[in-house]
Design a protein around this nucleic acid. Structure first.
Lengths: 332, 332
DNA sequence: CACCCTGATGTTTACGCAAACATGACGCGC
DNA sequence: GCGCGTCATGTTTGCGTAAACATCAGGGTG
């Protein structure tokens, strides 16, 4: 910076003013400084800047994996909105989803240069890490029911599941079978619970769940079992990937979709419209989730207020071709 | 830090020595300091640390989107390996894939606290941004042919495509039709080129390409056209998502896979094994790509040497059920 | 017993920047 | 024409840390 100041014939402070876009610098001076910067290839040192200002303009995102569509889409949206506000994103992946792994990530995080944290993580693991969550650091949590302690942003899992089940019921199916996600997932539990509630409210039998792990392969295994039951005419899979596996299982078992069996997924991943047949599913607005995360975090950073509570992002039923009325002989 | 020093009855320097794990501190003193740290909730300020040490222990990753499996997997692997080396990852998404967008990202990047950069981006857009790439900053490029100027890490696109085409030829198909990715993609161009070369070497006719954009929907459109050609018995799609669309199109057109038409994809996304039918495809080792990116970057950071050149990660043919010999009447 | 060496700890300093305050030039009003 | 306000710019200072150097105590050696 001193070199730039010398070359431009001004003081270091004026260089600083130019680089931060401060007002009160003569246009001619500004141009001269800019020129000198260019010539010397000057780049402000962000460490020094952060030290002086006491903020990093960076948001940390802690998660298990980018491999799920939801996570990577959410991160992408967070990054995009953060960038718009002048914030960068630092990724803190948790190598292993154990309490130790989470603890390690939170420890690293404590030493990281972040002004706030988005936690995309199942709540029970968050609990374990709770102790080491640096107090006073703004936090927003996704995919959790910790709304009483932290600001939570999430898709309206329950309403989405209700939309799916009601849609199948309205088509005339007597009941709806369910393929769940992993037990430890909050989203999975929420979707399963809502599925059960809708059936009970409608006075329909609640068939036993098949348990999956979000993967298409697990959906395939569940689908094989369901395909073997002739009374099963409607399946709600807790995500689109498992629905894909269910579709394959039904196809192999010779049961046509949607003529014999209807399938509804959850997520509306980009490929869902190209499944065979195109999948009727529940759309999640990840872009909006990311936006609200950033918004909530900035609110805390700027206003120094932690406001627990849950922000629910609406879901939407996307009707494609995998759900239809049940076969005539099974119709209500 | 001063408070900790006071509480522990030592100097600030000793606190620093403890927090950096420096040797030459009496065990009893160390414990006392650790104790005081805990009590006061002391966390070293990473900005000050970075300022003093002249390094951020952070790697920037600049990319267009996390929406493709390849990108998000690569980023995840980069993050995991970087974490192992004590580096964090900062994400710099390019909002719009235009030269302006890229320029903007590189400008932001210049001000970012990173010790090195991984660029996951098509090369022609990189060229446009070239001017503003801060000189002297370690860089590794993925998905590019800029091996003469930068260290490049990439899957062996050409060999992968060759494996796919040769596999179909060996099964007895007279030739192989191709659904490409977007024109501006280096990977897409490389795969298409290798496809053509293999056909020419084998003395087979080279049918016209169908052009897609990586999306399943574009694969569906291409598949519809291909399905209308009875002479088409083998299709190589430049990625698995487009292959999914092709599968759907063939199914709708009443052409069975693999009995009537064989399909091979590229990527081996996690769902590929659950397509209907399970997709034969080319596996890319994204974890290894991420690992080599970090390795290449750290080499530059530690040894201050820029070594242009391309590291090619081998691909592997994964045989599943979507490719088989052609129908008897079409057999060679 | 004086010397030096070693190892533990304290003191000084600078990293690069920007806030706060200081300076100085100019113009305007009474 | 004197004083005061305004605006552009310069000077001082300190953010939290760790490297470099300084100090000091104890122990072994000739």
């Amino acid at each position: 910076m001193a070199d730039v100041a010398r070359l431009a014939g001004v003081s270091a402070q004026t260089v600083s003013r130019v680089s931060t876009g401060h007002p009160g610098v003569l246009e001619s001076t500004r141009r001269e400084v800019l020129n000198a910067m260019q010539q010397l290839g000057y780049r402000p040192n962000s460490a020094a800047r952060a030290l002086k200002r006491g903020e990093f303009r960076t948001i940390g995102v802690i998660l298990f994996t980018l491999a799920t569509t939801g996570n990577s889409r959410t991160v992408e949206a967070i990054a995009a909105h953060a960038a718009r506000e002048g914030y960068a994103i630092t990724l803190i992946p948790v190598a292993v989803p154990t309490q130790d792994g989470v603890l390690g990530a939170f420890t690293r995080l404590g030493e990281l240069a972040v002004d706030g944290i988005v936690v995309i993580m199942e709540v029970h693991l968050l609990d374990a890490a709770d102790l080491t969550l640096p107090p006073g650091v703004p936090v927003v949590v996704v995919d959790s029911d910790a709304g009483d302690r932290y600001p939570v942003v999430d898709a309206d899992q329950a309403e989405g599941a209700r939309q799916a089940v009601r849609h199948l019921l309205k088509l005339g199916h007597e009941t709806v079978w369910h393929v769940t996600g992993p037990d430890e997932s909050f989203s999975s539990a929420r979707r399963a619970q809502a599925w059960q509630e809708v059936l009970e409210e409608a006075g329909r039998p609640v068939p036993p769940c098949e348990h999956g792990d979000w993967s298409a392969e697990s959906g395939y295994r569940a689908g094989l079992k369901l395909a073997a039951r002739p009374e099963c005419t409607a399946i709600f899979a807790a995500n689109d990937q498992m629905a894909l596996g269910v579709l394959r299982a039904l196809h192999e078992a010779g049961r046509r979709v949607p003529e014999d069996v209807s399938v509804v997924g959850f997520d509306d991943i980009p490929d869902a419209g190209s499944f065979t047949p195109p999948l009727t599913t529940i759309h999640q607005d990840w872009a909006e989730i990311g936006r609200r995360c950033v918004q909530g975090l900035l609110e805390q950073i700027n206003r120094h207020t932690l406001r627990p509570g849950t922000v629910l992002i609406p879901t939407a039923l996307i009707e494609r071709e995998s759900a239809a009325p049940p076969p005539a002989d099974q119709r209500q």
